[in-house]
Each structure stands twice: as C-alpha cells, then as structure tokens.
Design a protein around this nucleic acid. Structure first.
Length: 340
RNA sequence: CAUGCAUAAGU
C-alpha cells in the first residue's frame, strides 16, 4: 500500500492525473484497499484535473470509513481543495464549516478557490471569517490575500496586509515580494512597488513581468520599455510571459521597431507557437499600424483561437477596412470558430 | 517509508 500510494502521489504531484487514476484502479484490482493517505493523493489528482465526479465518489467512500476529521486533518483539507478547484465553492465552504478543526491550509484552499473563480472580493471576506475563527495566517494566506487585493485593486487592504506581513517577519520572502510588487503596480502605486522590487536581492522574472505589465497597462509604456531594456542588461532571459508584456509595452507606445525587436526575441526562443505570444503579437503589430506583419503572424499561427481572430479583426476595423472585416468574419465561421 | 493550500502574460 505504501508503494502504491507513493506512486499515485508522484503522478499527482507531476500533474499526471490520468496515470494516478489508472494506478488507483490497478491497485484495487490487485485487492489492495486504499487508506486515508491514498485518498489524499487521489483527491489531489481529481483537484488538478477538475474531475468532480471522481472526487465526489471518493468523498463518499471516505465518509463510509467514518467521520472525515476522525481519519486525518489532512484529508479534510484535500477534500475542500478538490471542491474549490472544481468550482464548487459553496460545497467547499460547507465542508470547511463542518470540519471540527479548520486549519490554515484548508482556509487557504477556500480563499484561493474564490480567487481562481473570479470572486476575489468574496475571498477577502473569507479571510476575515478565517481570522474571526481564530485560525492563524501563514505565508500562503498572505500571498493569496494580496493577490485578491490586486484583482479588485484594493490598495488600502493591500497596505494593511503588508503591515501585518512586516510584523510577521515575512517581508523578505520571495513569493511575498513578488505578490506585493504585483499588487502595488496593479493598484497604480508605482513608488511602493519599486521600493519592494529595488531592495531585493534575487529580483526574479515574475516581478519584472509584473512591473512591465503594470506600467504598460497604466499607460506608462515608455517606463515599461525602459524596464525591458534594464532587464536585458541584467542578463535575465525572457520567457513567454515577459515577451507578452514587452509587446504590450511596445504596443502601448506604438513603436514598430521595438515590436520587431521583440519579434526577433520570440523567434530566438522558439515561442512562435505559443498562442498567447502570437496573438499578442498580432495585436501589437496592429497597434503599430503594421497590418501586413499582423496578417503574416496570423497566417503562420497553427492553433488559432477566438482571440487570434478577434485581434485580426480589430486591426481591420481600426483601419476602416470594412469589407475585410466581413470577409474575415465569414472565413472565421467557415473554419469553425464561433464569434463572440 | 507515502499525503492537502502557491505569485506574473493575450482581443
């Protein structure tokens, strides 16, 4: 049982849910009964693949073995996380409430569930409930609460949380710094963001990306491009996310040369196939008035989605090419993409 | 000997 569980857990951790499920079946076929730990691993597999049905079945089996928390604290948390990841937020909250011990991790799972389903305001209300309930906040509690503040652009709450973080001594943690930078820059508090960013030893690529994206989104494209250059000077290599944000920056200032520069970087890194990268590129070329380039990228795109089409359409619209808009719309429908 | 919560990017 230990080695089976170890195998299943390994698959789950590496996001091979299907393999985890298969092993679970196989294990039972060989007459070995799962224990709580096996269930926890399986819950993880259901959570990451949103296999709600499977999760519910397992939930029922766990309950048959007695009260959830009688078996372990962890299994309750795993259950709640599964429901939260699958979007059954009510159920997740209900299960949480029914637990005799509501620990930090389980609360975090619910808070994150709200955030990942676009209910960040609710997430912050849940944080307050958590505090009233007497649970202690850990690093991830702060990290996801700050993310919620960023989502709803609630700077005051973010500042309040930052103060609490300072008291807990977590201000220098990498994850916390990244999330702080992102929250501040999304809220438009550039000086605050820079203060956290600048004093860091290992400023990582996530923070760079947040800053670039934030400046670009707040119409500070020049500043964003300056950051891109600075980043290059520091020898940090671009990934898909940084590329997308750099494009947003060059698009916001409408600079064809910058855009082409980034395009070269895309080719160098072999990121042409990344759908986020390529549709941003289409958009950016359109913003710079380089329709032909935009069309070329579109034509070379292998797996188009609705955003690719919309980006192309936006370019035609911007230039008043009405006929092309309708032709493209027609072609889009013919090729099986539903307009939104 | 095996187990739960994790940050940035596209119209």
């Amino acid at each position: 049982i230990v080695s089976w569980t170890e195998l299943i857990g390994g698959f789950t951790r590496n996001a091979f849910s299907a393999k985890a499920m298969l092993s679970f079946e196989q294990m039972q076929a060989e007459g070995i009964l799962p224990n709580v730990i096996t269930y926890v691993c399986m819950m993880g597999a259901c959570a990451s693949s949103c296999a709600l049905k499977r999760g519910q079945e397992l939930h029922a089996k766990i309950v048959r073995g007695g009260s959830v928390e009688g078996q372990s604290t962890i299994v309750g948390g795993a259950l709640v996380d599964m429901y939260a990841k699958c979007g059954l937020l009510e159920t997740a909250a209900d299960v949480l409430q029914e637990l005799a011990v509501r620990d930090t991790i389980t609360w975090n799972a619910v808070i994150l569930g709200y955030i990942n389903h676009g209910l960040s305001e609710k997430a912050l209300r849940c944080l307050e409930e958590m505090q009233l309930d007497g649970a202690s906040l850990n690093l991830l509690t702060f990290a996801c609460s700050l993310k919620a503040c960023a989502d709803v652009r609630w700077a005051d709450k973010g500042l309040e949380l930052h103060a609490e973080i300072a008291k807990s001594g977590w201000s220098e943690d990498d994850l916390i710094c990244n999330v702080l930078v992102d929250m501040y820059v999304k809220c438009g508090l550039f000086t605050k963001a820079r203060k956290v960013f600048d004093r860091r030893q290992g400023r990582d690529i996530v923070s760079w990306t947040s800053l670039i994206s934030g400046y670009a989104e707040h119409d500070h494209g020049k500043e964003a491009l300056k950051l891109v250059e600075q980043m290059q000077l520091e020898g940090i290599s671009f990934n898909a996310a940084t590329i997308v944000c750099s494009l947003k920056a060059s698009g916001s200032v409408g600079s064809p040369s910058k855009t082409q520069e980034v395009h070269l970087e895309i080719a160098k890194r072999g990121l042409e196939e990344d759908i986020l990268v390529s549709s941003t590129l289409i958009n950016t070329y359109n913003q710079c008035g380089l329709l032909l380039e935009a069309e070329k990228v579109f034509d070379e795109q292998s797996g188009r989605d609705i955003v690719s089409w919309n980006s192309l359409l936006a370019g035609y619209t911007k230039l008043g090419k009405t006929q092309r808009v309708f032709d493209t719309l027609q072609r889009m429908i013919t090729e099986g993409e539903k307009p939104d």
